[in-house]
Nucleic acid binder design. Sequence first.
DNA 1: ATAAATTTATTGTTTTACGATAAAAGTTCA
DNA 2: TGAACTTTTATCGTAAAACAATAAATTTAT
Lengths: 74, 74
Amino acid sequence: MIRVNLDVMLAKRRLSSGELAERLGITPANLSILKTNKGKAIRFSTLDALCRILECQPADILEYVPDTTESEAV
Amino acid sequence: MIRVNLDVMLAKRRLSSGELAERLGITPANLSILKTNKGKAIRFSTLDALCRILECQPADILEYVPDTTESEAV
DNA sequence: ATAAATTTATTGTTTTACGATAAAAGTTCA
DNA sequence: TGAACTTTTATCGTAAAACAATAAATTTAT
């Protein structure tokens, strides 16, 4: 599973979702989809803009979380 | 600019493009588009499969290269 | 409570992934 | 030199998804 960690970078940069959406040039509603892991893909143009504005790397935004098919119990 | 660094991970894993394509379940031709930075976006499902097969993180595959609009001279 | 910010939900358009196939180009090796 | 193999390029087609726009619902803060 690929997780989008925009919250973390937003917090680090002390930026609100609305502000980021404005700077990205997309509506807050559409940014929200990405931010809440509802998206199924991402355009490189969007990822590029995110990295530029947040001054970070894709690594700071995208995370691969291995699927633990195993029981998961503690 | 977002750069796809699949070559590096393929080399590290000593895996050929064809072999990776086969394991991904996509044709070598279509993987090539991604590998040679011809793609404009990527599905999380594909990125997920890449990370799983190559045992790596998106960070190992996707890189943000800041645009140096400045003269670039040394 | 109420104002502001965020998320959800829809509908519509445009773009892109990815499939499939054929051809071109580049490698390897005898 | 040339056959065998791998990778890339080029098209066409279909299904999927980004992103726009708007309104409504929800959450958070004051």
